[in-house]
Simulated scan of single mutants.
Amino acid sequence: MRALDIDPVHGTRQTFRELCDVMSRPGTVSRVQTTPADYAITATLVDHEVTFHSSDEELTTALAGQGRYSAADPTAADIVHADGTPSWDVRDLERGSLVEPSEGATVIYRVEGLSETPKDGLTDVTVSGPGVNGTTTFGVGLPAAELSALADAQADYPRGVDAVFASDDRVAALPRSVTLRVADGPESSENDNGGDR
């Protein structure tokens, strides 16, 4: 993905390892070596076998130039990229089925900030479930309403969506298996995926 200044071998390989790490430790904010993180994650996950949606023209043009852009509406795409709060509703994305939960979408949010601790200007999200020792709280640069909608989209485990948040060189992830509590804002919400499994 040299069109995005991403090494197509070493950059994506390193990003894949970093993505696996944050997916296995939900709510943990880590730094990535390849930036911007949302582009690096997209370049790592999107190939000719998956469908993709993004309104970012630079990103879609680069993918198309590599023969890796199979466009789809957000409600049907395997991987969906959002620059901040999207125009579509995360609850309308593909959530898979009880038989094939892996068919649920992965959404990559480019956010204004990520913090490993609660921080002014960010929405606090408390996470529990597999991969979390008790609970962990981190800050995300998205409105509480969007994160509450994500909690709703993940409330029917094993169905749901996997979410990745990226801000410059920082990344965090919330797989569908976790329980979220959105602490800030009047739209606070909590999903219940049955606790640790």
Results as ranks from 00 to 15, higher is better:
Ala149Ile: 06
Leu142Lys: 01
Ala172Val: 06
Thr15Phe: 13
Ala145Lys: 13
Val50Phe: 05
Ala76Asn: 14
Val99Pro: 07
Met23Lys: 04
Asp192Met: 08
Tyr157Ile: 07
Thr75Arg: 15
Gly96Pro: 02
Ala82Arg: 08
Thr61Gln: 12
Pro36Gln: 06
Gly96Tyr: 03
Asp192Tyr: 13
Arg170Gln: 15
Gly139Ile: 06
Arg181Leu: 10
Ile108Leu: 03
Asp162Lys: 04
Ala76Glu: 15
Thr51Gly: 03
Ala172Asp: 06
Val32Arg: 08
Arg170Cys: 11
Val9Pro: 09
Pro143Gly: 00
Asp156Pro: 08
Ile41Leu: 07
Ala183Val: 09
Asp83Cys: 10
Thr126Trp: 04
Thr85Ala: 15
Ala183Thr: 07
Gly194Tyr: 07
Val107Ala: 01
Thr61Tyr: 02
Ala172Trp: 02
Asp83Ile: 11
Ser87His: 13
Ile79Trp: 02
Gln66Gly: 11
Ala77Tyr: 00
Glu49Val: 05
Ala3His: 12
Asp124Ile: 01
Val9Ala: 14
Asp83Thr: 14
Tyr39Ile: 04
Asp89Phe: 12
Gly27Phe: 00
Asp156Gln: 11
Asp152Asn: 12
Val46Lys: 02
Pro86Lys: 01
Ser24Pro: 10
Leu150Ser: 06
Thr75Ala: 14
Glu116Lys: 12
Pro36His: 05
Leu180Phe: 05
Ser87Pro: 04
Asp156Met: 11
Leu93Cys: 07
Phe16Asp: 10
Asp124Met: 01
Met23Arg: 08
Val46His: 03
Thr117Asn: 05
Ile108Ala: 03
Val80Asn: 01
Val46Glu: 01
Val90His: 08
Ala153Leu: 05
Asp196Arg: 03
Arg91Leu: 10
Val99Arg: 12
Asp124Lys: 08
Glu94Phe: 07
Phe138Ala: 03
Ala183Phe: 00
Thr136Cys: 06
Tyr39Asn: 07
Gly11Tyr: 14
His81Ile: 09
Asp56Leu: 08
Tyr69Val: 09
Ala166Arg: 05
Thr117Ile: 02
Asp168Leu: 10
Gly113Thr: 02
His48Ala: 15
Phe165Trp: 05
Ser102Asp: 15
Phe16Leu: 15
Pro74Cys: 01
Ser30Met: 11
Phe16Pro: 08
Ser167Thr: 09
Leu114Ala: 02
Thr117Gln: 09
Ala37Tyr: 10
Gly141Ile: 07
Val32Leu: 08
Arg68Lys: 15
Glu100Ala: 14
Leu174Arg: 03
Ala155Ile: 00
Glu18Tyr: 09
Val178Trp: 04
Leu122Ser: 00
